[in-house]
Design a protein around this nucleic acid. Sequence first.
DNA 1: CTCACGTTCATTGTATACAATATCAAAATC
DNA 2: GATTTTGATATTGTATACAATGAACGTGAG
Lengths: 223, 223
Amino acid sequence: MDAYEFIKEQIILGKFEPGMRLGEETLAKELNLSRTPIREAIKQLEAEGLVIPLKRGVGVRSFTKEDIRQIYDLRTLLESYAASQAAIHRTEDDLLELENANEQYEQAINHAVSLDMTGIRKIVNVNQKFHEAVVAASNNNHLYFHLSKVVVIPIVFRSFYWYNDFQLQQSLEVHKIIFEAIKNKEPERARIAMHEHIFQGRDNVLKHLDDIEISHLLKEEVK
Amino acid sequence: MDAYEFIKEQIILGKFEPGMRLGEETLAKELNLSRTPIREAIKQLEAEGLVIPLKRGVGVRSFTKEDIRQIYDLRTLLESYAASQAAIHRTEDDLLELENANEQYEQAINHAVSLDMTGIRKIVNVNQKFHEAVVAASNNNHLYFHLSKVVVIPIVFRSFYWYNDFQLQQSLEVHKIIFEAIKNKEPERARIAMHEHIFQGRDNVLKHLDDIEISHLLKEEVK
DNA sequence: CTCACGTTCATTGTATACAATATCAAAATC
DNA sequence: GATTTTGATATTGTATACAATGAACGTGAG
């Protein structure tokens, strides 16, 4: 398995926790590789900002609430722009991709009522598929390139744990609205709908981070 | 010297031309290093999109006119947002940085009337310093991080060759307007001024790329 | 008990050797 | 003459060995 993909996945899934040191020798043994390819993988992850210098080597970057806010604001800016551009430049093929992604999203939501690990992963994947399809339809490859590095943070993955059934249904509805706006070539409507959509995700995540903080404080008090 | 910095600089300055293959052994000899650190540098540059796979290894990425358009559009979006945020969040220290950058810009423009290589480099540096100061004042580190990877392309450096004295003076005036808007906490004015400013840069670059294209076509005809 | 210093040791940084393979070119086939 | 095959060669991919260095810990002085 590719070292870069592996380490990245472990970080996103939270298996490698924030602040955890990534020793080259340890990773090399775990992946049955020498240190050379490990070092190259780490250099890439460092360029993406997923790991940062720690002690002499690197460790998994931890994101503060302020980081999350900034990242979501950036994502809002980029994706709402992508949506408006998509409404201008979209082809028929783009529309098929978007519709397909939403159908899969609908299935994933209704199928995975239990919201277990595999169900969540499925939802995360097809949700991502829709958002990627919007960016792909925007006709700006560089936007796609940069956005792919903005979105991939552990917290985005985990955020779907915190969605209830109603919120998932609602998010599907917004996806459909965005799709319609792109289909009907209404850039402003697409932009605003996407803007609102991501802001809702942002608020949800930030609210739950507050809850976690509070529950941690309560635990401290018990001690 | 650090391999990453060296290769990056060569690409930005145009010493390593687009499409040129970057052989590990060659670079290693040139920098008196082994292949190991060279490979790591290349992996980083690849993650940033400055080099792309070519044959078995990598080569300097070449940017089409469409790429340039997309990159400038992205930069416009991000920097005009940065300007509006800067007008909200700027501190007194930020204002000092901005003012200082503009003073240096003014000096560089008036000093380097000849527009030789060192004069251009000076102008590029202080111009960048102003734009970075705006982003720094926006209070969004992630914006700063991503923007630093959007802007650094060879063409941006070269674009200053194509500015005449009047255009340089004009660009200084716009910098001052942006500064005033940020100082007076007028987000919308800052946003629009920055938007227009970068769009002018964009049009300038694209126009000159057309000229180059035409002159190349003429050369072909002569042959 | 606290802090400064120095030694030890784990870990990264770099070089080199070897293995794997894509590229290029020449020869063979159609 | 065009196309495919095949082999030589240059170049990357990986492993390993050694050098450099900084973090951790113990020791001793204040």
